[in-house]
C-alpha cells in the first residue's frame, strides 16, 4: 500500500472499522513507515482525549425542573408554529400531488374552520396521504388544550378521540395554592399557560387564592415563569387584557423576571 492511501485511512484503522484485508495491507505499510506510525499514535491520543469528554458527567448541570420549563413554554404557545409552519410540509407534498389542486378550496375551508373554532380536532384529507401507517395523515391541533392538568382529557367532549391516560400523582390544586413545596411545577406550568390564553380567567384565579397564601404563591409562580423565560411575555399579556387587576400581578412577574437567572 502506498503512503498516501494508508495515511488517509488511519482514523478508520484506529476505530477498527476497516475490512480485515485493508488492515493487513496497512499493517505491512505501517511496519516500514515511521511517519504513519507516529501519525497513528497521535491520532489515538487525540481520540482518547476526546473520549475523556464522554466520561465526564456532562448532564450534571441540567436543572431538575428542565422538563417542566419546557412544558411551560409549550403551554404558553411558544411551540405553536402558526398555519404555515404547521401545515407547511403536508401542504407542499399535497400541492405536488395530483389530487392536491382540485381539493384546494375544500381543504382551505376546512383548515379555516378548524382554526376559527380553535379546538383540538383531527383533520383527515385524502390528499394528505403521506404516512404509511394511516390512509390519511392526522393533524392533531393541540393549541387549544386547556383542560386542567388533573382532569382526564376524556372529561372534555372535544376529546372523544383522544386516548385516555392515567394521570401521574400530583398534589391537588388547593395544596399548591397554599404553598405545597413539591410537585407543583405542573400546576405552575398550567397557570402560566392559562395566563397566556385567558388573562382574565387567570386573574380571577389569582384573586381566588386565599389572602394569606397569595403573595407566596405568586412569588413561586413568578420564579417559575422567570426560570422558564415566560415571565415578561405573560406580564405583557396580562396588561393587554386591560383588566384592572392586571397591573399589580404583571408588575410582580416583571420584578421577579428582572432577577438574573440562578
Amino acid at each position: 500500500m502506498r503512503h498516501a492511501s494508508c495515511a488517509r485511512r488511519l482514523s478508520q484503522y484506529a476505530d477498527g472499522t476497516l475490512p480485515q484485508e485493508v488492515c493487513i495491507r496497512m499493517d505491512a505499510h505501517l511496519a516500514t513507515c515511521p511517519e504513519c506510525r507516529t501519525e497513528l499514535s497521535q491520532l489515538r491520543s487525540t481520540i482518547d482525549l476526546l473520549g475523556s469528554l464522554a466520561s465526564s458527567s456532562a448532564s450534571a448541570g441540567l436543572p431538575t425542573d428542565f422538563g417542566e420549563q419546557v412544558m411551560a413554554r409549550i403551554s404558553a404557545g411558544e411551540a405553536d408554529p402558526g398555519v404555515i409552519g404547521r401545515f407547511g410540509d403536508q401542504w407542499r407534498r399535497w400541492m405536488e400531488s395530483s389530487v392536491g389542486p382540485p381539493l384546494l378550496t375544500a381543504a382551505f375551508g376546512l383548515t379555516l374552520l378548524v382554526l376559527v373554532q380553535g379546538v383540538e380536532v383531527e383533520v383527515s384529507l385524502p390528499g394528505f396521504a403521506s404516512s404509511a401507517s394511516a390512509g390519511a395523515t392526522s393533524i392533531p391541533l393541540e393549541t387549544a388544550v386547556s383542560s386542567r392538568p388533573d382532569v382526564s382529557p376524556a372529561a372534555s367532549p372535544l376529546a372523544a378521540r383522544r386516548r385516555i391516560v392515567a394521570l401521574p400523582a400530583m398534589p391537588p390544586l388547593a395544596a399548591c395554592l397554599r404553598g405545597a413545596e413539591s410537585g407543583c411545577g405542573r400546576w405552575h406550568a398550567w397557570h402560566v399557560g392559562l395566563g397566556m390564553r385567558e388573562p382574565r380567567v387567570f386573574l380571577r384565579e389569582v384573586e381566588n387564592v386565599p389572602d394569606r397564601a397569595r403573595e407566596r404563591w405568586l412569588d413561586e409562580l413568578s420564579r417559575f415563569a422567570a426560570h422558564s423565560g415566560t415571565a415578561s411575555v405573560l406580564a405583557a399579556r396580562l396588561r393587554e387584557s386591560g383588566d384592572p387587576r392586571a397591573h399589580g400581578v404583571a408588575t410582580h412577574f416583571e420584578q421577579v423576571a428582572a432577577i438574573p437567572r440562578r
Binding site: V70, M71, P140, P153, R162, R163, V165, L167
Partner: peptide
C-alpha cells in the same frame, strides 16, 4: 400524537 401531552413530557 394522540394528544397526550404527558407522553411528550415523558419523552423530554
Amino acid at each position: 400524537r394522540d394528544g397526550d401531552s404527558q407522553a411528550f413530557e415523558a419523552l423530554v
